[in-house]
């Protein structure tokens, strides 16, 4: 018998009889001030939130602030005058190793934990939001939901090959619990919040 069948047989023999399929409801509107909560939480975990009203403001911010390295890339066509516009899987992910700033967009964010949901559909490459030195995300305030249950109500209908929640810059506290921003992924995360 194959290992697969041995394991499945042993599991079937040993698993307890029944346990009901749990039903629960956590979708209550626990959070009225979605933007405020999102801003507070993301700021608390090391992110920066820049409230904006137009793409021009974002362009200006990028021009004025994203200047610690030469390469800024984006997958947002409206930003192609201030950043290199990336195309879907145009190159190997290794070609992104010198990206200083990546500006991407998201259609979903979560107030309770400051996370934004990103799928590969919106990325030129899965590696982009990790390999860049600094990450920026454009988010519409209307796309913020209260909690993770609400987020999965949105995601459930979505088909993706890869998707990730990103909540702040990469970080570690492995050395004596001292929090350090910038472990292996981006050292900073800026969210442009379109009000």
């Amino acid at each position: 018998m194959s290992s697969r069948n041995k394991i499945l047989t042993a599991v079937a023999e040993n698993q307890p009889r029944t346990a009901p399929f749990p039903e629960f409801e956590f979708l209550d509107a626990e959070c009225i001030y979605l933007s405020e909560t999102f801003i507070n939480v993301l700021t608390g975990i090391g992110g920066t939130v820049i409230p904006v009203e137009t793409m021009i403001e974002i362009q200006n911010y990028i021009l004025q602030n994203f200047n610690q390295g030469p390469r800024t890339v984006t997958n947002i066509p409206a930003l192609n005058n201030v950043a290199e516009l990336m195309h879907q899987s145009s190159t190997s992910p290794h070609a992104l190793s010198d990206v200083d700033y990546a500006v991407i967009d998201t259609r979903l964010a979560v107030a309770e934990n400051g996370a934004v949901w990103v799928t590969e559909k919106g990325l030129s490459d899965r590696a982009l939001p990790f390999i860049c030195q600094h990450l920026a995300v454009v988010l519409n305030a209307g796309d913020i939901v209260s909690n993770m249950h609400a987020a999965y109500e949105v995601i459930n209908a979505d088909d993706y090959g890869y998707g990730t929640f990103i909540a702040g810059p990469s970080k570690t506290a492995d050395i004596e619990q001292s929090l350090v921003l910038g472990a292996h992924g981006p050292k900073s995360m800026t969210v442009f919040l379109m009000m």
Partner: peptide, 14 residues
């Protein structure tokens, strides 16, 4: 933490 920085969902290979 309210959530880990990355919660990555791998469905299909790259």
């Amino acid at each position: 933490q309210p959530v880990t920085t990355y919660s990555s969902h791998f469905k299909t290979p790259r």
